[in-house]
Amino acid sequence: MTMKDISVAELEEIANRLRIHVIEMTTAAGSGHPGGSLSAADLMAVLYFRNLNHDPSNPLWEDRDRFVLSKGHIAPVLYAALAESGYFPVEDLKTLRKMGSNLQGHPVRGKVPGVEMSTGSLGQGLSMSCGIALAGRMDGKDYKTYCLLGDGELQSGQNWEAAMFASHNGLSNLIAIVDRNRLQITGSTEDAVSLEPLPEKWKAFGWNVLIINGHNVRQIMEALDKAAESKRRPTVIIMNTIKGKGVSFMENNAGFHGKACNQQEYEQAMRELKGVSE
């Protein structure tokens, strides 16, 4: 494990930079999914700048840790993390969703270095991650497979097929993270089709369960470290988050699930995010 030596303050700074990218990218595109991107920004900063064992200059390095974005609609924050890590130039971010850009609305394997799987249709990433984790074990590799799931997508049955498969096969090299922001397009996940008791569901499916505050960088670090030590079971980190975190008018607002800022909103968001930076 080549854990990067990086401070909590530095990771918080990176997370804020990712949030700025997300707002800039989606505003420039005039569409996209800022809400869920912002809720996962702290996790993405810790993963890409501390825990993931990866080499942006060699994206297909066979011993790399794998990251699968099951909630593919938050492509903006993934692209931002990849660009900040050095997979491709940060300037490319402004091409998001534009004709001819590799930065498609949802991530596409083969188009963008660092994107492991094509996702966007919800409920499929955990199955793909099971296959990658299984291949790692067959090949005697030490890499870990991380899969970021939305909470709303857990309404999809395929996740639970994959959850059963992973624990049955003791895929301890698989780490799922649930971005528990409690909102989906129609509103509260609990009003749509309730997910609670969510930790108990995962426990019943045979997983280690860690529950953290997904905006506390130290808790994210500790949970990822602990998950990586599992020897027998897959681990799920349920991180409680706020959809739209960091931009006041987006926070806990399902309206910004899949809608970009207008000019006025953009200016306010930038003031808020850059204010934190300064």
């Binding site: 799987m117 291949a135 097929e161």
Partner: peptide, 14 residues
């Protein structure tokens, strides 16, 4: 459905 996802993950790993 899970079978296809797992097959894809295995194929992505060579």
């Amino acid at each position: 459905q899970n079978m296809i996802g797992i097959a894809a993950g295995l194929a992505a790993s060579g």
